[in-house]
Write a protein that binds this DNA or RNA. Structure first.
Length: 1011
RNA sequence: GCGCCCGUGGCGGAAUCGGUAGACGCCCGAGACUUAAAAUCUUGUGACUUCGGUCGUGCCGGUUCGAGUCCGGCCGGGCGCACCA
């Protein structure tokens, strides 16, 4: 081997070796422990950028590690090859998208090979290949047969100048990206997949995915957004027609003062036909882009339709408004407006002078306590009124103080309990073992007091509270609930109640019914809506109920009247898969005037996409290609038209993981090999796919299972969400008003902080940090750094610079350090190998310096193995390798056993580095005298005996501040540790003249003296 | 606007279960080698300091013997919001 590290030679020879040996060809071996490692496939945008390098290096590191752990590994690669950027490139360069795409794929494959990623290249695929998409077309027809696909109208962005449908990305501030025209919304027929039919299963199973990041699971749950509510019918006044609304707050039904419908709602359209004001509003609402984000951020506006509906319980006449914030696609496109208890409705009512009614009061007792009707259903809080409020003396004065200062009940009660030692007991705010915040907790009495304002309706709170309550129950802790407001309104009752509860260790007295709604204080609605759940008031026979009782009561009554029904609603909408684009997988449908939409017969698949068209930005060129469009109807043979819409590219990427496992299968979408490889054991990809792609892929897996294909319910067992690689973005405005994105390498920063084009000095606009993407042209191409530093240094630097899940602002500062480390390690092995073979290690004959270096080695191996196997924190694994190299470089013992120890260490070092820097490790491993390649070597495991040490370093604190460090023999008793701590000079200085109130000993860590 | 995540030296980051804040690396300073430079090696490097210490993890508060870590509230940044992939 060469004495100095030369990445170019090392990398090309290792890559040649792997190619010649077919080292990464995956073969199904029944019975062998398989490991399917998949990084999200890239869009072939041209060249790799640093985000790709990060993604594919992580996948390769995991794959190579698992192989060393004895797994039969599959690591494939492919390309998500259909999509908009190819059409944009075609518009710009007048080159067919196919040609551009295939050439990009070639470039990127070359770069991936240069990086030394261990793919089974025989399984490579691209979604734009007919061999791939024919099965997608086949599957569409299967789903159509099973009733899981339907067609309906839905809205798209329409550019009236270019006469074309725009993607959301192509709409900038409500205008078309090329034409600058104000975008309109159009309704066109589109195909939909019934993902809502799987909403429950998708929701239930996402909770079970224990190896997925918590954040992703939460985002998916929120996205599916299951809510239980009521569908309520309002009769349109003077007609035999109903307006149906969905609400999750039927307890506020008596507070409805108007009803809002979407601008596209039939009632709004009907009113628009006769009223110019309404027509103008509907027209205006149909401009701008269709995204939810745009809807939510715009000014909330509306218009009265001149239509009334009848309240199903009160019989009142209620006006109907069209409002621009109501979504036609959620629920029924209509909502009952309760301005008293919904903030958006409140703002709307204030703006348009509509009445605001209070029908919910804060929970807690009315003041003064009354004896109203309808007490049932209110289970808590329940503090019995005291017959004769006879409090012990100190409590009576406390009660007076408490009532006098009605500012912050919680603060007040806390100072009461803490400082005055209420009832002689010590209170704290947390359980010592668990971090749940309890308002007040007394450990001796196992009694928790929860001070409640009646809120906590949000999911996160409710979840946390439920977990806390379960914990308290398991610990046998009594929980008393006290309403905030009661602390002031019934001070004596509350204090007496707490007093008695503390005095006895019995459960508190059974709840007494609370009085009803009459006399209850209505909330102040002058500044904002009261949105908490509370107790109903002004709601006829439903007054005085809590949320659940009011919900149940009102639901039962409406159901009896046939004016409402319980319904589970989802935020999740069915998945529209039609795209009015050329560069996508054709939807295999033929439209016949007699037979309607007819699926293309199986023997005519695939419907091939012509690959020589060049889109010009004015609609789908397929529309103008008669040879594609004009076909006979497969059923009746009459002239018919072929569907020119193509699939959403999310469809392409929803099943590619299964196709990899059945690569090249000619007889079906997947074959039995999928049953061997699936599920994917480790999936790696950007956090930006946390919701849509992952949800759609999970959905497809279930669809495939239900169609009897070899598939699994959940396709991805473990998920690693890689953080984005960010770079600054710059653009200049083109003559047409569009944006021309400039690569950061072509931009200079001027002295005043503005940015200019390097070549011309022309000013450019900076948009700040964002992910590296083709559309923003801010990708950093790794090619130059690979040339100057080598692939291994790039891989090492990528893994070292940050943990995989963290967002990373790209900078190559530090890449020199990666190369420097490789050179050091190389020299260490080269010097060692030059001295020839070593003796076997004799563990019994080692000097203490030799034992020390072995302890260091095996400690670091334990850390590195944990980082690889469990944490996926390769940055700290690399740091441990660096520390090891630093220690080995200082180890100058060249005695036979010294060299044996060094040999053991270098052998382990090369192996643990090999997943990250496979080329250098390949050659170093051979230099250490091994016959088989390092990719097939065994992962080195730490040796427990080598890690045993006879002394332990501990720190000594006084009042939590570091004051000294001691070394004690392993296995010392607490007393011996404390004695050693007290002997420390600095510690003595800080303890001088003070009595030690408490001493805390954390074994193996520290001693803390509290004075 | 809503949902999810993240804020630690000049920089990237470490501190894994509430227990020594700043591991490892970059940059920078000093020294060795060299005619010189590069490379390499050694060494220093949070701030302040009366050299005893004090302060310090976006901000404000809380819990704890002890908080970067847990809780509440702000501020800032990123991702997603259904036609970018």
């Amino acid at each position: 081997m060469k004495a100095d590290y030369s990445p170019v030679d090392v990398e090309s020879s290792a890559q040649a070796f792997w190619a010649a040996q077919q080292s990464f060809k995956a073969v199904e071996k029944p019975g062998a422990d398989k490991f399917y490692c998949l990084s999200m496939f890239p869009y072939p945008s041209g060249k790799l950028h640093m985000g790709h390098v990060r993604n594919y290096t992580i996948g390769d590191v995991i794959s190579r590690y698992q192989r060393m752990k004895g797994k039969n590994v599959l690591q494939p690669i492919g390309f998500d090859a259909f999509g908009l950027p190819a059409e944009n490139a075609a518009i710009k360069n007048k080159v067919p998208p196919a040609e551009w795409t295939y050439s990009n794929i070639d470039t990127m494959c070359g770069q991936l090979k240069q990086l030394g990623i261990g793919y089974d290249w025989d399984r490579r695929l691209a979604t734009c290949e007919p061999e791939y998409y024919r099965w997608q077309q086949w599957f569409f027809i299967e789903l159509l047969k099973r009733g899981l696909i339907y067609r309906r109208n839905s809205r798209v962005n329409w550019d009236p100048v270019d006469q074309t449908v725009l993607a959301n990305e192509q709409v900038i501030d409500g205008r078309g990206w090329r034409s600058g025209a104000i975008v309109e919304q159009r309704e066109i027929p589109q195909w939909f997949l019934k993902i809502t039919a799987y909403a429950d299963e998708l929701l239930a199973e996402v909770k079970q995915l224990e190896h997925w990041p918590e954040a992703v699971r939460r985002m998916q749950e929120n996205w599916i957004g299951r809510s239980e509510g009521l569908e309520i019918d309002f009769t349109v006044a003077g007609r035999d027609e109903k307006l149906t609304v969905f609400t999750t707050r039927p307890d506020t039904l008596y507070g409805v003062t108007f009803v809002s419908v979407a601008a596209q709602h039939p009632l709004a359209l009907e009113a628009a036909a006769r009223d110019a004001t309404v027509a103008a509003f509907v027209d205006e609402a149909s401009r701008g882009d269709v995204t939810e984000a745009a809807m939510e951020t715009m000014e909330k506006r509306g218009v009265a339709l001149g239509i009334d509906v009848i309240h199903p319980l009160t019989g009142e006449c209620i006006p109907v408004y069209a409002a621009n914030f109501v979504l036609m696609s959620y629920g029924s496109g209509a909502v009952m407006a309760v301005p008293g208890h919904d903030q958006r409705d409140w703002e709307f009512a204030v703006k348009y002078g509509l009445p605001i009614k209070a029908v919910i009061a804060a929970a807690g007792l009315p003041s003064p306590p009354g004896r109203g009707a309808g007490g049932e259903g209110v289970a808590e809080p329940a503090i019995p009124a005291r017959e004769k409020p006879r409090l012990p003396d100190p409590l009576r004065s406390l009660a007076r103080e408490l009532r006098a200062d009605q500012t912050d009940a919680e603060q007040y009660l806390w100072s009461l309990l803490r400082d005055r030692r209420f009832g002689g007991h010590k209170f704290r705010r947390q359980h010592p073992a668990e971090p749940y915040v309890l308002d007040f907790y007394c450990h001796e009495q196992k009694l928790a007091i929860e001070l409640d304002g009646g809120q906590h309706n949000e999911d996160a709170h409710a979840r946390r509270d439920a977990a806390r309550d379960a914990f308290l129950a398991a610990q046998g802790i009594r929980t008393l609930r006290v309403w905030n407001s009661e602390l002031f309104s019934r001070t004596e009752d509350v204090l007496g109640f707490l007093w008695e509860a503390l005095a006895s260790s019995e459960a508190p007295s059974p709840p007494a019914p609370l009085p009803g709604g009459e006399g209850r204080q209505a909330p102040d609605l002058s500044a904002a809506a009261f949105t908490e759940k509370g107790i109903t008031i002004n709601s006829a026979e439903f007054s005085g109920l809590d949320f659940k009782a009011a919900f149940d009561g009102i639901a039962a009554k409406l159901e009896a009247q046939n004016a409402g029904r319980r319904r589970v609603n989802y935020r999740l909408r069915d998945w529209g898969v039609s795209r009015q684009r050329y560069w996508g997988c054709p939807i295999p449908i033929i439209y016949c005037t007699d037979c309607d939409a007819v699926p293309v017969p199986a023997d005519q698949l695939p419907v091939r996409l012509p690959e020589d068209l060049v889109p010009d930005g004015r609609g789908n060129p397929l529309l103008r290609l008669d040879s594609f469009v004009n076909v006979p109807c497969p059923q009746c043979g009459k002239p018919a038209r072929r569907e020119t819409d193509t699939f959403d590219t999310f469809v392409d990427s929803s099943w590619y993981y299964a196709r990899f496992a059945s690569a090249g299968c000619q007889t079906g979408m997947v074959d039995e090999r999928a049953a061997y490889w699936l599920p994917v054991d480790q999936y790696i990809g950007g956090i930006e796919h946390a919701i849509l792609h992952l949800l759609y892929a999970r959905f497809f897996s279930k669809l495939m299972r239900d169609c009897g294909l070899p598939a699994v319910a959940e396709p991805f067992k473990r998920l690693l969400t890689q953080g984005m690689v960010l770079a600054e973005g710059f653009y200049r405005v083109t003559d047409a008003g569009g944006r021309d994105w400039i690569n950061p390498k072509d931009v200079d920063k001027t002295a005043d902080g503005s940015h200019v084009l390097k070549a011309t000095g022309e000013a450019v606009t900076a948009v700040g940090l964002g992910t590296m993407s083709k559309s923003k042209n801010n990708g950093v191409d790794p090619a130059a750094i690979i040339d100057s530093h080598g692939a291994d240094a790039v891989r090492l630097f990528m893994m070292f610079t940050a943990p995989p899940e963290q967002t990373l602002e790209w900078s190559d500062a530090g890449i020199d350090g990666a190369l420097r480390f490789l050179k050091r390690a190389w020299r260490l092995v080269a010097d060692h190998a030059a001295l020839g073979a070593t003796e076997p290690l004799d563990r019994a004959a080692l000097t203490s310096a030799q034992k020390d270096i072995r302890r260091k080695l095996h400690d670091q191996l334990a850390k590195i193995s944990d980082d690889f196997g469990r944490r996926h924190n390769y940055n700290t694994a690399v740091a441990a390798c660096m520390e090891l190299v630093n220690a080995l470089a200082k180890f100058e013992d060249r005695s036979p056993q010294g060299r044996a120890v060094l040999n053991e260490a270098l052998s382990a070092l090369v192996r643990v580095l090999s997943p990250i820097v496979p080329h250098a490790a390949h050659e170093l491993w051979l230099a250490l005298g091994n016959a088989t390649p390092v990719i097939d070597a065994e992962w080195p495991e730490p040796e427990a005996d080598a890690r045993v040490s006879d002394s332990i370093a501990m720190v000594v604190q006084v009042n939590g501040k570091l004051r000294g460090q001691i070394s004690v023999p392993a296995g010392s008793t607490q007393d011996a540790i404390i004695a050693a701590a007290l002997a420390d000079e600095t510690v003595q200085r800080f303890l001088a003249g003070a009595a030690i109130r408490k001493q805390v000993v954390v074994p193996g860590k520290l001693v803390n003296f509290v004075v």
